[in-house]
Lab assay of single mutants.
Amino acid sequence: MDVCVRLALWLLWGLLLHQGQSLSHSHSEKATGTSSGANSEESTAAEFCRIDKPLCHSEDEKLSFEAVRNIHKLMDDDANGDVDVEESDEFLREDLNYHDPTVKHSTFHGEDKLISVEDLWKAWKSSEVYNWTVDEVVQWLITYVELPQYEETFRKLQLSGHAMPRLAVTNTTMTGTVLKMTDRSHRQKLQLKALDTVLFGPPLLTRHNHLKDFMLVVSIVIGVGGCWFAYIQNRYSKEHMKKMMKDLEGLHRAEQSLHDLQERLHKAQEEHRTVEVEKVHLEKKLRDEINLAKQEAQRLKELREGTENERSRQKYAEEELEQVREALRKAEKELESHSSWYAPEALQKWLQLTHEVEVQYYNIKKQNAEKQLLVAKEGAEKIKKKRNTLFGTFHVAHSSSLDDVDHKILTAKQALSEVTAALRERLHRWQQIEILCGFQIVNNPGIHSLVAALNIDPSWMGSTRPNPAHFIMTDDVDDMDEEIVSPLSMQSPSLQSSVRQRLTEPQHGLGS
């Protein structure tokens, strides 16, 4: 029994001894940790006062410096006190997940390849973020970090730009207890964004957000305005092209109309020559008939004078003969009235020469109109080809070629109108001259024959008349068809009918 009691006491004593040793060891460790923490804080404070003595007594600045020092320690893998190029590049790629850190790398180092804690602190103090207000930090939280649900907490804590380094380091107390961020992804996102802002300055999105919006609005307005302008120009170009094509079609119709007119003019001239020949034959025939009538009257007179026994018949025959003579005298007077005045042959040749010289100047004017028309046609064809290209319509709308071609078409039409008026006036004037003179002027042997017949020096006439060419005029020349008939041919039928009527009546009387 005593043995059992003793054994229990030994065990209890051993447990108490072991517990005492454990408590003693724990207290010694706590004392050691407290001592090392105090030494670390003293070291940080001493270093901060050495680097930035004016701010070393500010608790907030001291906390920010400690956060900057921890960031530098995080980047300094070899713990030599300086962050070199390789260490910063590795940190950007692995910790901040930048696949192309060239720009960030140059911004961080600049011309200094080794970055110490002092360099990093001075860079942070010179950053724009260091002077941010609470509102600017909240704006950064909303737009860049995209965590607007913590806006009220940031405003309540009055977190300005000075506190940004403390957000950039992993601090459970700061993010969990103070900021009350329960979501781990939110804490990590805030820490990475803050670290990027401390090292490289304010984000471009935050700094140029309004400018970007303004430029976007301006670009949209310019784009819409450009599209509207292109649409208006395209519609104007199509309308202008439609008008130009309509004018061009009018020129083609006028060309065909003048071609038909020239054919009718040539045909009328041929008919005029035929009528002139018929007139000469008719006059000769009338003279022959008059002579035959005179001979017949003389023969009847002689027969009736030789027959004294038939006085009654003779008297009747003499009366008939007197009627025939009276008819012959009237026919002769009618014929003489139409051919009583004949212009000198020299006057006819001079008038024919005048007509040919006028035709020369008319042909020159006509050729100029043809050239203008050809230029207008070529310009229209070029515009047609340009319209078939990809940007042809837009190019035509913004060039002056369309207006130039339109002006050329209008100029050609005006020139053709002048040529039309000149042709109309010339035909009418020479027709009236032919009526008054009674001989042909338009139809003549040609300028060379006339110059030779009148003994004129050929050098006075200049160049010879160009051959009539096919040219274009407007449709108002169609009503000239009825005026192209020679006035002499219009007189011939009346002359034929009057003479024939007077010759036929006596012959019928003789026949009876």
Rank of each mutant, 00 (worst) to 15 (best):
D89F: 03
D77R: 04
S88G: 07
D84I: 15
A67R: 03
N80M: 11
D77A: 03
E87S: 11
E90M: 02
K73L: 06
F65V: 07
S88N: 12
Y98I: 11
D89W: 02
A67L: 02
D82Q: 12
S64G: 00
R93W: 08
R93E: 13
R93G: 10
V83H: 13
N80P: 09
D77L: 12
I71K: 10
A67P: 05
E66F: 07
S88Q: 14
G81V: 09
E66I: 14
M75R: 06
D76E: 14
R93Q: 12
L96N: 06
G81A: 09
I71G: 03
I71Q: 11
D84M: 15
L74Y: 11
D78M: 11
N80D: 05
V85S: 05
V83S: 13
S88L: 05
V85R: 04
D82V: 07
L63R: 00
E66Q: 02
E87P: 14
L74K: 07
N97W: 02
V68N: 07
S88E: 07
A67K: 01
L96C: 04
E66V: 01
D84T: 09
Y98A: 04
D76G: 11
S88H: 07
V83W: 12
L63E: 00
R93F: 09
L63Y: 00
D95N: 01
V68P: 02
I71V: 02
S88C: 02
S88V: 03
A79P: 10
R69S: 07
G81R: 13
D78G: 13
D77Y: 03
F65P: 09
G81L: 11
D89E: 02
D95Q: 02
S88M: 07
V68I: 10
E87A: 09
M75G: 09
L96W: 05
L74A: 05
V68A: 01
D76W: 15
M75T: 07
E94G: 08
V83Y: 14
Y98F: 00
R69E: 08
D76C: 15
E94T: 11
G81C: 11
L63S: 00
E90N: 08
N80I: 11
I71F: 10
L74V: 07
E66K: 00
D82F: 00
D82Y: 08
L92G: 11
D89K: 01
F65T: 13
R69A: 04
L74M: 03
D89T: 05
K73M: 06
R93S: 11
V85A: 05
I71A: 08
E94D: 00
V68H: 15
V68S: 01
E86I: 08
E87N: 05
D95Y: 10
D78R: 15
F65S: 07
S64L: 02
L96H: 13
D84G: 08
L96R: 08
V68T: 10
A67Y: 06
S64M: 14
V85P: 08
V85L: 05
A67W: 08
D78Y: 11
D78I: 15
H72W: 13
R93P: 12
H72P: 06
S88R: 03
D89N: 02
V85G: 06
N80C: 09
H72T: 10
E87M: 14
L96G: 08
L63W: 00
R69W: 10
G81F: 13
V68Q: 02
V85K: 14
N97S: 01
V83L: 09
D76L: 13
N97R: 00
H72M: 10
G81S: 08
I71P: 11
L96Q: 12
D77S: 01
V83N: 14
N80Q: 11
F65H: 06
L74N: 08
D76N: 13
M75I: 04
